[in-house]
Amino acid sequence: MSEAVQVTTGGDVDTEGADGTPNGASATPEGGEDLLVREGDIAGDYLERLLDLLDFDGDIDLDVDGGRAVVSIDGGDDLSKLVGTRGATLEALQELTRLAVQQSTGARSRLMLDVAGWRADRRAELSDLGRTTAEQVSQTGDPVRLNPMTPFERKVVHDAVAGVEGVRSESEGEEPNRRVVVLPAE
């Protein structure tokens, strides 16, 4: 088995990182890649059986990306029932799939589930929204409040806003009405 992963930092040391958040690299579990492949296999079996029972057409694709297992289901029109309004059903099914994986492996899973390319499409759309909103705020100097979004959606918008200079973003409100606000940088 591999030795402990050594993390080499560059010249600048992050002095504000002492908030107890584990850093990504050191959080990689032993045999990380193997475990993630196993997570995908368990999730694939769980979801395939569900599709069989429902008589839904779907191909399940397994991958490992960015330190997490990724499971994608593509296929017939029935799959829209597993996406739901604003992806609510997809989020719920992802939650159950993570629990099924955890029940088998004993370890918490960060597995990502996509159905009918919904996340991929939504990510592109939200990225555009974040960038154009940021550019607008940068020009007018007026803050803009976006519609309520899920945590996944807000993350995509925050990332897009971060790519534009002279603006920043934060989230306000309580779930399920939590929303991104784009503001001029201080």
């Binding site: 597993l82 739901g84 609510a88 059903t89 719920a92 939650e95 159950l96």
Partner: peptide
């Protein structure tokens, strides 16, 4: 406890998926 989840989270997920289907 597992089926209900913390704050009813798992039961809610089961309801959401079944309502979708």
């Amino acid at each position: 406890g597992k089926v209900i989840g913390r704050g009813g989270r798992t039961a809610t997920a089961l309801r959401t998926v079944m309502a979708g289907i």
